[in-house]
Amino acid sequence: MAGNSQRKGAIRKSGSKKGQQVGTGGHQRRALEGKGPTPKASDRPNHKAYKAKVRAEKEEAKRPQGRTPKAAPRDRTSGSLELVIGRNSTLEALRMGMPAHVLHVFNRIDADDRVTEIVSLAVEQGVEVREVTKGSLDLLSDGTRHQGIALEVPTYEYLQYQDLLDNSDGPARIVALDSIQDPRNLGAIMRSAAAFGATGVVIPERRAAGVTVAAWKVSAGAAARLPVARAVNLVRALEDYKKAGLFVVGLDAGGEVDLHESQLLDGPLVIVVGSEGAGLSRLVRETCDQIVSIPIVATTESLNASVAASIALYEAKRALQA
């Protein structure tokens, strides 16, 4: 009721005023101060990376003192080695005879038929088998699901593009890849190149797929038989091939002639396959002696790079034998 100053709470006492007061500006300064950068995952006790680091440190502490410690698996694979991870991938790699150095197996692995065959093949092929802890495998695989298995394989050794000219079995037949990005396409092209008697494959050193584990697997063992060279400048490599007497034929949907009508396929030859989507780059296209196309029905936009390469390799082999 207005004017009823006798009601409890109707008059606010001076000492009960809420809000800011004189001299309170710095009371919360400490709470507002920054706490510094966020610690690394391996330094946070509740993070799995920290637990893995602790396990690795404990294993290190168990080693006999006075010996020079060997490089950790992660260090050994960071430069000159690659990894095949998982049971199916490792089994497939060993079945096709992929070169390998060390097989890492979880010391408490729940073995099945795949694990049994993996270990058996590794022993037969002279691959060192090591029983390791889960922590070691976690560090080695860098978080990738490993299923208790990891295989160390050497990186691929490339040739110089000039080396592919040395072919004692007949005229050089080289496949040049203009920035193919997918290693599976590279592997499939290597498989076809080996099947149709190509001398080798040349790829750019940069911005292109290399002979990785994925490419090796798709090649179905062709990577062990077919040499692959790298060129710093693909255009320069093609020009050098032309000076050595090879014809350079590029594959493109808008070619000058159909593939089967080309008169350049029966001698020393370089077949150039363009990248997925973009096709041949301008400079590579201008360097080619001839641009050929593979006739397809109008309802199909284009062929996969590896399929186009296979068809061209078949036609080239047929022309050579004619």
Rank of each mutant, 00 (worst) to 15 (best):
H104A: 05
H104Q: 12
V105D: 05
N107L: 13
R108S: 08
R108E: 15
D110Y: 03
D110S: 08
A111D: 02
D112S: 06
D113W: 12
R114A: 07
V115I: 10
T116G: 06
T116D: 11
T116Y: 07
T116E: 14
I118Q: 12
V119I: 11
A122P: 04
A122S: 09
A122K: 14
V123R: 10
V123Q: 14
V123N: 12
E124C: 14
E124T: 12
Q125F: 05
Q125A: 12
G126V: 07
G126A: 05
E128C: 00
E131D: 12
E131K: 09
T133H: 02
L137W: 04
L137F: 04
L139W: 08
L140F: 01
G143S: 00
T144H: 05
R145Y: 13
H146I: 00
G148C: 01
I149C: 02
A150E: 05
A150W: 06
P154A: 11
T155F: 13
T155L: 12
E157L: 14
E157K: 09
E157H: 07
Y158P: 08
Y158D: 06
L159P: 06
Q160Y: 15
Y161T: 14
Q162G: 14
D163T: 09
D163H: 10
L164I: 10
L164F: 07
L164D: 08
L165S: 05
D166T: 08
S168G: 13
G170A: 15
A172N: 11
R173L: 15
I174M: 07
V175Y: 13
D178L: 00
D178W: 06
D178K: 01
S179R: 08
Q181K: 08
D182Q: 10
D182M: 05
D182Y: 03
R184D: 15
N185V: 00
L186R: 01
L186P: 01
G187K: 01
G187N: 01
A188R: 04
I189R: 04
I189L: 01
M190I: 00
R191D: 01
S192F: 11
A193N: 09
A198S: 09
A198W: 07
T199W: 11
G200W: 01
V201W: 07
V202H: 06
E205T: 11
R206K: 13
T212K: 02
V213T: 03
A214D: 06
A215D: 02
A215E: 02
W216I: 04
W216A: 13
K217R: 11
V218R: 00
S219Q: 06
S219R: 13
S219M: 01
G221D: 04
A222N: 05
A222W: 02
A222C: 09
A223W: 02
A223D: 08
R225T: 14
R225L: 14
L226M: 10
V228T: 06
V228C: 08
A229F: 09
A229D: 09
A231N: 12
A231K: 14
A231E: 14
A231C: 12
V232L: 15
L234W: 11
L234R: 04
L234S: 03
R236K: 14
A237F: 11
L238F: 03
L238P: 07
Y241W: 11
K243S: 15
K243R: 13
G245V: 02
L246H: 08
L246W: 11
F247K: 10
